[in-house]
């Protein structure tokens, strides 16, 4: 009985993360997107913490704490400030319309579930479901990066992709803490680099729409 409960809660939290990804895809305002991203990180924190409890692996609490600290608090606040300081146009320009993007996202989730069922038929169901959701989160993050023109939303897409990776990593038992911490730090550094990059774009081109970069290279779409 107890095992069923573990499985159901983990399933619920991972599914929640996928749902949050869809919520992010749906947003067309920057502030709202950042807030949903913070929510995304909180769900991730809960999921990791639950895995730590289930697997009785105290080092996963550290991972959860890092996720909460960086992803749910520091990065959203920093992004808010960037948006404010740069006075970015707060509407998100999409390449495809949002409905189609959502439909594509549903397709991706279906694809990742099918792939996972095919690839690991004999695996531990808990890990397998977790991996299917993690793969969906990664693919949705990529879809977000591909379908948005705005640099800030691309950054957020990247961060949510990384959340998917953490979910996958914690689902697999025996992932060393060092690896998780280094992944977390590399994401932080990527965030800093991209942040500086944003400021530079802003200084040069007076906009963070990455189309400006393309037009600077002489290749207006």
């Amino acid at each position: 009985m107890r095992h069923d409960l573990f499985f159901d809660v983990a399933h619920l939290l991972a599914g929640g993360l996928v749902l949050m990804s869809f919520l992010m895809l749906y947003q067309d305002r920057l502030y709202a997107l950042i807030n949903v991203f913070a929510g995304h990180a909180i769900v991730l924190t809960l999921s990791v913490a639950w895995q730590a409890y289930v697997q009785d692996a105290p080092h996963l609490y550290v991972t959860a704490f890092i996720a909460l600290g960086f992803k749910a608090i520091i990065i959203p606040i920093a992004l808010h400030r960037i948006v404010e300081r740069l006075g970015i146009h707060r509407e998100i320009e999409t390449v495809l319309n949002i409905g189609l993007t959502m439909l594509g996202g549903i397709g991706l989730v279906a694809l990742s579930v099918v792939v996972m069922l095919r690839v690991a038929p004999g695996g531990d169901p808990l890990a397998r479901e977790d991996l299917a959701f993690a793969l969906s989160v990664v693919l949705l993050g990529l879809l977000m990066m591909v379908s948005r023109r705005n640099a800030v939303s691309q950054v957020i897409g990247f961060m949510s992709l990384e959340n998917g990776l953490i979910l996958a990593a914690t689902g697999a038992k025996g992932m060393p803490l060092v690896v998780e911490i280094s992944v977390a730090f590399s994401v932080l550094i990527a965030f800093i680099v991209i942040g500086i990059f944003l400021f530079r774009i802003r200084e040069r081109f007076d906009t963070v729409d990455i189309q400006a970069l393309d037009s600077f290279r002489g290749e207006i779409e």
Partner: peptide, 12 residues
């Protein structure tokens, strides 16, 4: 000579 987004789309 493609935009970053298109490269990402290619990888995707």
């Amino acid at each position: 000579f493609m935009t970053i987004r298109r490269y990402l789309a290619l990888v995707f």
